[in-house]
Structures are given as structure tokens and as C-alpha cells.
């Protein structure tokens, strides 16, 4: 790997880690946050016929997981090109 390529790879990795961290925080908040730790507080709120905390634990967190992965796929495809590390 040449020096400039090495630099690009390092920058790519840093940005990848940043997005990963953001998405993992969301992953944690919707499941362990809303669905487990804060479930009693959120259950006081009604959401389309569900207590909100219960909805996150049995429905909402799963929808967010799916969206997160597709967002990650899209973001990474963008980063692959931005740093010129995509597959030919």
C-alpha cells in the first residue's frame, strides 16, 4: 500500500467507526433503553393502542434494527467510494 492509500484507509476506518458508534448507540437506546431500562416510564404513554415501552420491546426496536442495517449499507457504500476503497 502506498502512503496516500494508507492515509485514505486510515481515514476511511475512522469515519466507519464513527458511524458504527452512532448506530450502536441507537441500537442500545431503542432496545435496552426504551424497551428495558425505561420501560415503566414509557408505558405511561399510549402509542397507537400500545403502552410505548412495551411497543418498543416487542415491535419498535425490531423495526429500528432493520432500518439501521440498511442505513449502514447505504452509508458504507458511500464511504467506500469517497475513500476509493470500493470493490472493482
Amino acid at each position: 500500500m502506498s502512503a496516500s492509500k494508507q492515509e485514505a484507509a486510515t481515514a476511511y476506518w475512522k469515519e466507519n467507526l464513527r458511524w458504527m458508534l452512532i448506530l450502536l448507540v441507537i441500537w442500545f437506546v431503542v432496545s435496552f433503553g426504551f424497551g428495558v431500562l425505561l420501560v415503566d416510564q414509557l408505558n405511561a404513554i399510549q402509542f397507537f393502542g400500545f403502552p410505548l415501552g412495551f411497543w418498543f420491546a416487542q415491535q419498535g426496536s425490531i423495526y429500528v434494527f432493520v432500518l439501521e442495517i440498511f442505513f449502514y449499507v447505504w452509508k458504507m457504500n458511500q464511504l467506500d467510494r469517497k475513500y476509493d476503497v470500493h470493490e472493482e
Binding site: L23, W27, V39, A57, S61, I62, F65
Partner: peptide
């Protein structure tokens, strides 16, 4: 509600 552990646990791993 206790059954939620399976719903979140067996999907969240894919993230």
C-alpha cells in the same frame, strides 16, 4: 412482556 427478551435478543444480534 418477559417474552420480549426473545424478540429483541434474536433480532438485535443482526445489527
Amino acid at each position: 412482556y418477559d417474552g420480549s427478551v426473545y424478540l429483541m435478543g434474536w433480532t438485535g444480534g443482526y445489527v
